[in-house]
Nucleic acid binder design. Sequence first.
DNA 1: AATTAAGATGCAAACGTTTGCATAAAATTT
DNA 2: AAATTTTATGCAAACGTTTGCATCTTAATT
Lengths: 340, 340
Amino acid sequence: MNKKRTTLKDLAKELGLAASTISRALDDHPGISQETKEKVLNKAEELGFTRNSIASSFRKNKTLTIGVIVPRIDIHFHSLVISGIEEYAYKAGYNVTIFQSRDSIKRESKITKILQNKMSEGVIICLGTETNSYEHFEKLNRMKIPLVFYDRVPTGFEANKIIINDYESAFKATEHLIEVGCKRIAHIGGSQSTGIFKARFEGYKAALVKHDFPMEKNLVHFTKDLSYEEGALVAKKLLALKSRPDGIFCSNDYTAVSAIQVFQKNMVKIPQEIAIVGFSNYPISKIIEPHLTTVNDRAFEMGMAAARLLIRQIEEEEDIIQTEIVTIKTELLIRESSTK
Amino acid sequence: MNKKRTTLKDLAKELGLAASTISRALDDHPGISQETKEKVLNKAEELGFTRNSIASSFRKNKTLTIGVIVPRIDIHFHSLVISGIEEYAYKAGYNVTIFQSRDSIKRESKITKILQNKMSEGVIICLGTETNSYEHFEKLNRMKIPLVFYDRVPTGFEANKIIINDYESAFKATEHLIEVGCKRIAHIGGSQSTGIFKARFEGYKAALVKHDFPMEKNLVHFTKDLSYEEGALVAKKLLALKSRPDGIFCSNDYTAVSAIQVFQKNMVKIPQEIAIVGFSNYPISKIIEPHLTTVNDRAFEMGMAAARLLIRQIEEEEDIIQTEIVTIKTELLIRESSTK
DNA sequence: AATTAAGATGCAAACGTTTGCATAAAATTT
DNA sequence: AAATTTTATGCAAACGTTTGCATCTTAATT
């Protein structure tokens, strides 16, 4: 005695109309009389009828669903991006299915297959660290499923991308340190095989060059993961130098925060003796004392932009495949860690 | 010249077999010969065939999709829970569609309708703050769609729930303060109309009672949102008292952290003069100096448990509707903020 | 009044997969 | 060798919605 769902046909029978008429009435089709539309609407309400959207998807070949693949959901940056994606997608009538690759290319590849079968109409991706080939995405491309990458985007693979201008943001952050009077600026960077961290380093270098500062090798340190722990390690190295830097540009907020703490423990005053700038505007940056100057990477807006671009490509009539690269404007949030 | 997907029928034609045979072969059905299975598998590979799972869902009336409704994705606690849900669901072959209610009951209700139409097979929910009636969920219940609530769960509404023992966790946290020698313990609590925060307060009280400590009214403060700012406000009030507390149990980590900072700015030593315990094990708790003693609420495990319970209920043959309440074990993470 | 146009509704096929039942062929038992 | 069982495959309907086209009614135009 499983209670069956009410279907279009049930409604049709009740009203003595054809299923097609009901369908059109619910769609507010111009060819259906106002009178009938009202009758249908009322009856639908009465019987608690709602369309079976799986059947609809099946028939129309449209699922109104987009997939999102991120390395991990519980990284604050990604959760903000997903939030932005969901927000835009919801308003546009799309649903969002999420997957974590957990940085495994195998899992990433399997997920693309699932999305293919599930007839996802488009996919938003942040690549995992392992990912160095893009065959699994090419397959989606061949099936005309639009893709949008964000943050960690593929290189040498034409695709839609949502990025920030890491180079320019780093440049401005470094220049800000120069403007507040720093003379010798260090850099705590990320893995140089990752595009965004390389770009941040380049931006740092460019600012030094512009202002005729020499680049001192022993002031530049690259970490593996930009982890809190690695940040402390580098900070200790900088602390041990006979002539310490008076400013540091860090490629993320974790290393910046741990550097602040290391210096403070060693009685080095922030920002008076060393000014510090981070990157990403993590919640911690507004809590640490002194509050951290950092680059707002506008993760939420990235998500919105990714969803907007994807949905536009899904709904575009033309089949002229073209890719877009959208750059989100960042802003330097100047706080106490750099205001001498 | 839209490239059409290869279908079962295409495969069937290619091989001179019936579509049903292909379908069964791909399912490794026992009635199909090994030889045929191999031929089918090879041809499928060759033509890049994958099942259209929308058609399959439609036919089988099974979508292998679960919905998740959270107030906001970018709250760290929720992103951890979602991560746990995704992890379990992925391994069980289910997909996860996420929605943010943004604490609006209207949006929450609309989402339940979408999930109904989309034939979600089950839903995991953390209620929004506005939610005080459960009709929209009752409707899902009536359609035999299993529901699992976590964290903010409905009261007076029989349902599956994943919770932690807030009372006991608070009790232990407070007792820990007593054990390290605190004599006068304050409490920074959340809105008492929210079950979990009331339970934490009750646990605090019970620990005091057990150890024959009086409850001092002016040491107990309830905030609206347990926000960082409110924590600072309460901390300042406590600071202004002629006889200050020597320990504080806070209902979350934000208020605990801001209290630490307020005290430190006023030259009050943590933990020597005031020991502090938080709740939730936010990332900040391991960064703030001194590191914060806090209750690990095991958000990831909550997500796993929610998905496990939901999927079990989805797949259960029996129709005996029963609800389960799962309590996740917490642990007190003792760090420097409370070790005198 | 005859013709045409416009308006409202119905018919039936289609989407791709699954599944109960039927059938055919081969293997086994009598 | 006939009867029976087993094994392998095919047939056809069904799932609920959508959509092009056909049909029928009514209104507008000649």
